[in-house]
Structures are given as structure tokens and as C-alpha cells.
């Protein structure tokens, strides 16, 4: 399988990655080779096999729905790139009418 440069660009956009031309070129080659290797899975007949997404056997783990105060809001905000009045700051995404 050959992954085209356009396909690589499409995936990068989905993944919110801005790639350089050199990276696009490299990933197109490397990913093609890696997915060629993955194709060995197609040799296995798995029509009757249930998928395993996790091994715990646990489903719907419940606990009491109680609010727990986080005691270090200051520490949270201290590592944020921009904050104001105890909130994270992000650029405006809606235009003024």
C-alpha cells in the first residue's frame, strides 16, 4: 500500500498536526511500509472472533456521585499559558456582529 502525500495531509489535518514538507515525505514512506506490515493480520480469519478492547471484564463501574473539591486550583492555573480571574484564557472564536 502506498500512502500518498495528499492522504498524509488529510490525516495530519484530522490530527491537528502541522507537518513540514520533509515530514510529509518521510511519513508517507514510513507509514506505507508500516501498514504493509499490518496487512499480515488479514491472513487471519477473524469473522467469528469477538474484539477485545480491554481485558478487565469490568463494565459500568459506578461510584457515589459526590462533588469533591480540588484543593490546588492555584497550582492548576499556575501551569496554564494564560488565565484571568481564575479561568483559562483562549482567543475569541465568535465574531462581533
Amino acid at each position: 500500500m502506498k500512502l500518498s502525500q495528499q492522504e498524509v495531509e488529510r490525516i495530519a489535518t484530522l490530527a491537528r498536526l502541522k507537518l513540514t514538507e520533509e515530514e510529509k515525505n518521510r511519513y508517507s514512506q514510513e507509514l506505507s511500509k508500516i501498514f504493509d506490515y499490518m496487512d499480515k493480520l488479514q491472513a487471519l480469519d477473524t469473522a467469528a472472533v469477538e474484539p477485545t478492547s480491554q481485558v478487565t471484564g469490568l463494565t459500568n463501574v459506578m461510584r457515589e456521585d459526590v462533588v469533591e473539591e480540588f484543593d490546588n486550583v492555584g497550582g492548576l492555573l499556575a501551569v496554564s499559558p494564560q488565565s484571568q480571574n481564575g479561568f483559562f484564557q483562549v482567543p475569541k472564536i465568535l465574531e462581533n456582529k
Binding site: 493480520l41 487471519l44 474484539p51 478492547s53
Partner: peptide, 12 residues
Amino acid sequence: AYYKKAMQVRTL
């Protein structure tokens, strides 16, 4: 073709 297949192989 990929993710579901991989999860089935994981079962095996």
C-alpha cells in the same frame, strides 16, 4: 480493516 481487526487478533 485495522482497529477492529487488531482487537479481534488481541482476543486470539
